[in-house]
Design a protein around this nucleic acid. Structure first.
Length: 214
DNA sequence: AAGGGGATCAACCGCAGCGAA
DNA sequence: GTTCGCTGCGGTTGATCCCCT
């Protein structure tokens, strides 16, 4: 039962990575009108996106309270405990981790924790208990904490196709006309929550929204 | 320096549930 | 009771990044 107007055959409907302009439009619109009723929101805002896509983008990325990267050991422990309790109920688990999205937790689980479980199972197929996650026994937390190295602490995912980026997806302030230039002028020192260089953060977008907002 | 392969993450897809008409 | 539209969820995919050889 997918949304009819979201027909993927429709050439009017854009897919793939969001552009900075689209992000700004969405942020701006939600700031003025609030979120919800995503299909009509997408239309009213003039976004050639499905309501679904807008919702996902907002919830997983643009929302001001979204925390990204650097899953702490405490959060990891919580994820494991809750997953042991509820299984793949990512949204339910996410509700207990403020600022984390179900998508992020899901990805984290698949890439980090599941990998370690598999490795452990391979190494010790005979012993069944090594990663049997018992909420009452937190001592069984496997290795990811030790191995964790936050390669993607930055907002490197902010890729804007067609914007003439360098090979890395981290968006630089310079050499970007239009909106990007605007950013560069208003925020000469791009900031992320991790204070990496030349990386856009949601704060950038929100600051822009405030400037553009009417 | 270049290429290959694995890791990571944003975004899409399909489905189920819910409420309104 | 049925249909329709919308939302939310979980699974999956594709693009990109990074590391190793």
């Amino acid at each position: 039962m997918d949304e009819k107007p979201c027909n993927s055959q429709d050439p009017e409907v854009r897919k793939g990575p969001w552009t900075m302009e689209e992000d700004l439009i969405l942020i701006n619109y939600i700031a003025n009108h609030g979120e919800g009723v995503w299909n009509s929101l997408a239309r009213s805002a003039g976004l050639r996106r499905t309501g679904k896509s807008c919702r996902l983008r907002w919830l997983n990325y643009l929302r001001p309270d979204v925390r990204r990267g650097n899953i702490t050991p405490e959060e990891q422990l919580l994820i494991m405990e809750l997953h042991a309790k509820w299984g793949n109920r990512w949204s339910k688990i996410a509700k207990h981790l403020p600022g984390r999205t179900d998508n992020e937790i899901k990805n984290y689980w698949r890439t980090k924790i599941q990998k370690h479980i598999k490795q452990a199972e391979t190494m010790d197929a005979g012993q069944s208990s090594e990663l049997n996650i018992d909420p009452t026994s937190t001592a069984q937390v496997p290795g990811p904490v030790d191995h964790y190295h936050p390669v993607h602490e930055t907002y490197s995912s902010l890729s804007y196709p067609g914007h003439d980026q360098p090979s890395t997806s981290q968006v630089s302030c310079v050499n970007h006309p239009t909106v990007e230039n605007c950013y560069a002028h208003n925020f000469p020192a791009p900031f992320s929550t991790e204070s990496n260089d030349s990386v856009w953060s949601m704060e950038d977008l929100w600051s822009m929204e405030l400037l553009n907002g009417d």
